Simulated assay, not measured.
Amino acid sequence: MSRATSLMRSAASGGRVTRLELFFDLVFVFALSQLSHHLLEQPSWGAAGETFVLLLGVYKVWVYTTWAATLLDTSRFEVQWMLLVVMLITLFMNASIGSAFGAFGWLFAASYLLVQLGRGAWLLTVGLDRTTHNHFVRTLIWQCMSAPFWIAGVFFGPGSRLMFWGVAAAIDLGGHMLAHRLPGQKTEGSRVPLPGERIFERFGLFYLIALGETILSTGLAIAGNLEDPLIFVTGTVSLAGSVAIWWCYFYSLEQEILKKLASVDDQFRPGILAGNTLVVLLAGLILVAVGDQLAISDPAARPDVATVLFLFGGPALFLAGRGFFIRRVLGHRQPSDLAGIGALAVLANLSFLLPAFVAAMGAALPLIGVAVADAVNRRRRTQQGAR
């Protein structure tokens, strides 16, 4: 057996997520905080577009590195060093988020390309099986197609950066959605040695970290406004919304997905779909975090358009992403998600007439309703299965 081949994960390697992988995730807590602050400092459509493009860049670094760590034996010295080097470079990339559309756009783009292209080329040397090797060759080709636009965004200046980087991010996202197909070439998912349960565990842990950052930002906003008695009400409502999101993801969705994976041979396609859906869920959490901070900063005032969009758009994105994933992977519709989105739309229009803390309640109530509906439906299915 060659040295490169031995880097592949085997049955003896174990399927548990290692502490190094969790340590690697910590640098992305910083990234999500930076993204929330970027949007909070300038709550506008332009800043929202910038935040989403930067989120795609940050997420692509995380998901491709995580994918590699899932396929490889993380007990091997070479794989551990790969994670640590990516972590170091990504730290500087995330530190530049606040100035990515200003003076330090070059640092964000250079760090991003160094990680994506460098790790992609390194993966071709570790002795992957033929199907997976060919897939990563195509992945590297897609990344090379987006690279000129990341570079052009730096050299053409801040004025046109969003346009160039938007195209680059769209290419990267499109490649992921299409499983990096090229003319006449595609990946046979059943032949990819992907441990589905492990990759979904990594997605769940990352989402939990993102949810924790939302709670952290809410807590910091409360700490800065303790003199207002309405802060306690608004903070409680914000936490209730975060708990409802946790319940909807981990109590309902995760268990059903793991059960589904155990019954299918091709775990590659659900993994690709889960990766794309996670971007939507993360975007929703960023909106939730910003909306909560805006409501907490002045709970008695009537919310402006930006605050309403953040407060209600975040939960709506979460429910839409969750419903889409359940429909595509589990094969059934989730009426509670559609009802929750409808309720959010109605309450969003009414919230312009109400104080911000009441608007925050309106944004949390549909999430709580969906969580309760999930609990009732799960108990009903459990009782029916026991008969």
Rank of each mutant, 00 (worst) to 15 (best):
L287C: 10
T18N: 03
A386G: 08
G275I: 08
G323W: 07
E78S: 10
L211M: 03
P193C: 00
A121N: 12
G105R: 04
A300Y: 08
R181T: 11
G153L: 06
F23H: 13
D337Q: 09
T187N: 02
S13L: 05
V85A: 14
G331H: 06
I199M: 08
V167L: 13
L226F: 01
I231M: 15
V372A: 11
E50H: 10
L71S: 14
A31C: 10
N377K: 13
F232R: 14
I222K: 11
G105T: 04
H332R: 12
S252C: 12
L354I: 04
Y59M: 01
P183Y: 01
E50I: 01
G342T: 15
R380S: 05
L353E: 15
E256H: 15
V126N: 00
V29E: 08
I97N: 00
A356R: 11
F312Y: 07
G219R: 08
R16K: 15
S44C: 03
R381F: 06
G120P: 06
L273F: 01
E188P: 00
G323V: 07
T70I: 09
F232C: 00
W247S: 09
R328E: 15
A386I: 13
I286M: 01
S242Q: 11
Q80F: 11
V370A: 13
F92I: 07
G340I: 08
A371G: 10
G385I: 05
V243Y: 01
H180Q: 08
E78W: 04
F325D: 04
R161P: 05
G159D: 05
W150H: 00
L140P: 09
R191A: 13
I97K: 01
P193E: 10
C144R: 07
L287S: 13
W62R: 04
L330T: 10
R269Y: 10
D304T: 01
H180Y: 15
P355C: 03
A223Y: 10
E213I: 08
F318K: 06
E188S: 07
T236E: 00
A95T: 05
A295T: 14
G49W: 02
E201P: 12
L83C: 09
P195C: 05
R3M: 11
M93W: 03
K60T: 09
G118I: 04
I296K: 06
G153M: 07
K60S: 03
F250Q: 11
